[in-house]
């Protein structure tokens, strides 16, 4: 999943409004940031065993839980951070094809191969996340403006990625 992960971060904001959105966005993309680091280090694995397998993502979630909990003493917030990290794995199973554990099977619906279906699923995730996030915003005379900007920008970003997918069948991460 691409921009759909932002939907999970926005939903996390609704679950615990005191958590900074930056923390939730980093949590939502944690496995992809690990992939980037591995790519720069020259040890990238195209299947994502070290970044997207079940044990890896649970390790990142535990790290996020411990780090956020120790810094803020907000252990309920730490649970939300861990849940947002874990959401990456579940969302990627819908759109991608990811490893389960070393020696285990690959899993996922591979919607990346169908950019229109991918846009639909990611769009629904973005929409749900944005609607949940909308409830965290301060009261305004025209609250739908801010929500529309968020929803429109995220959908436009997702659409750009899906069009790029349609034009170039292969977009290697590393």
């Amino acid at each position: 999943m691409y921009i759909g992960h932002v939907g999970a971060a926005l939903a996390g904001k609704r679950a615990r409004a005191s958590i900074g959105l930056l923390v939730l966005l980093v949590a939502a993309y944690a496995p992809d940031w690990v992939d980037t680091g591995l790519c720069l280090a020259g040890s990238y694995n195209p299947h994502g065993m070290l970044s997207h397998s079940i044990p890896s993502v649970f390790l990142f979630a535990l790290t996020g839980f411990a780090a956020y909990g120790m810094v803020t003493r907000d252990w309920r917030g730490a649970l939300v951070v861990a849940a947002v990290v874990l959401s990456h794995m579940f969302l990627d199973w819908i759109t991608g094809y990811k490893p389960t554990w070393p020696g285990g099977p690959m899993m996922g619906l591979r919607l990346y191969e169908h950019p229109i279906a991918d846009f639909f699923v990611e769009g629904v995730t973005i929409f749900i996340g944005t609607m949940l996030y909308a409830r965290t915003l301060p009261p305004r005379r025209r609250p739908w403006v801010d929500v529309s900007i968020m929803l429109g920008a995220l959908l436009a970003l997702q659409l750009t990625i899906n069009i790029a997918q349609l034009l170039t069948k292969s977009l290697p991460k590393c």
Binding site: Y2, I3, H5, V6, A9, L10, L21, L22, L25, V26, Y29, D32, W33, D35, T36, C39, L40, G42, Y44, L137, P138, D146, I149, M150, A153, L154, L157, I161, P172, K173, C174
Partner: peptide, 30 residues
Amino acid sequence: MDHYLYAVRFIGALLIATLLPLLIDRRARR
């Protein structure tokens, strides 16, 4: 060399996906 270019592109995409919602959120809470 190629993998550095890919990494830069990947980092760019992650930064956009992170910074864009942050900027919109900051505007919405002003």
